[in-house]
Design a protein around this nucleic acid. Structure first.
Lengths: 145, 145
DNA sequence: TATTGTTATACTCTATAACTATA
DNA sequence: TATAGTTATAGAGTATAACAATA
């Protein structure tokens, strides 16, 4: 395998990601949630309570923008804000049952989009898919800032 | 392979896409181009001239929004607009050399992000990756509206 | 002094509605 | 009448700068 082969394959991967990403955003829209909101809410659903600053960093957004996003989501009953018991300046943000239900709905729809496609692949291809995404997972991880 | 297996694998795929998508958008930002602009410009670079309406549909944006985007990109010298010779109402949009150069720069950086990762995988895993993305490509295609 | 979160304000992006020109 | 594109206008979303409270 040459570097040129890697680049050719790399291009197919990134183009796939951009295209499937668009279809996933269509699903967000169908549920009336912005991609950013879904992303932040999903983070809260799976990683538990966090702060405005942490959420902002993870979402690549400035803190005032996250303050606003969090205010809107609290108004809509998707999250709750509470003072941080260990730091008087801080705020702990947690997802509400309603927020969790919304994340779950959207998530299931996204999973279904992909799973329905996988269902028509043969077993050998499916094994390759499993091996691939096991190996590729770290590529999605965020760099250390 | 059961439906449950498919769903588990599907989730990993969609999460990977959302995460790598975020890193790819970081690259757009590093080049001072919005993800939407890069996407539209890349479409023009690879599919040739098109119209405002087609671009809008592909980008999932309303026509007035695309008119604006196209105006801004023309002002910045990334594209050119010409009247459609076969339809007096229409406009043909083509990318300029400068626009193409920008797309190419961003594209190479994105490819490098992925290719550098691929370079550390073993040959068997790389074969699996190739098989997988061959098979998955149609999943990125847009549905017929 | 530095940090967390917020408010005030401006800018970008997108949408809806209304308009022009052509089919 | 319908369609392609535009203009006018309003509504999200995000950023920078300045501020309050706490560390």
């Amino acid at each position: 395998m040459t570097a040129t082969d890697h680049r050719r394959e790399a291009e197919r991967i990134y183009v796939f990601v951009q295209h499937l990403g668009r279809r996933l955003r269509d699903i967000d829209q169908a549920f009336g949630i912005s991609p950013r909101r879904f992303s932040a809410l999903a983070g809260l659903a799976f990683d538990g309570p966090t702060s405005v600053g942490e959420l902002a960093a993870f979402e690549r957004v400035k803190r005032p923008s996250m303050t606003r996003l969090v205010q809107d989501m609290e108004r809509d009953g998707l999250i709750q804000r509470r003072p941080d018991p260990t730091d008087g300046r801080g705020v702990r943000i947690r997802i509400t049952p309603r927020g969790r239900a919304l994340v779950e709905q959207v998530r299931q729809r996204k999973i279904a989009l992909v799973a329905d496609f996988l269902a028509q692949l043969n077993p050998e291809t499916l094994s390759a898919v499993k091996v691939s995404f096991d190996a590729l997972r770290p590529l999605g991880r965020v760099p250390p800032e």
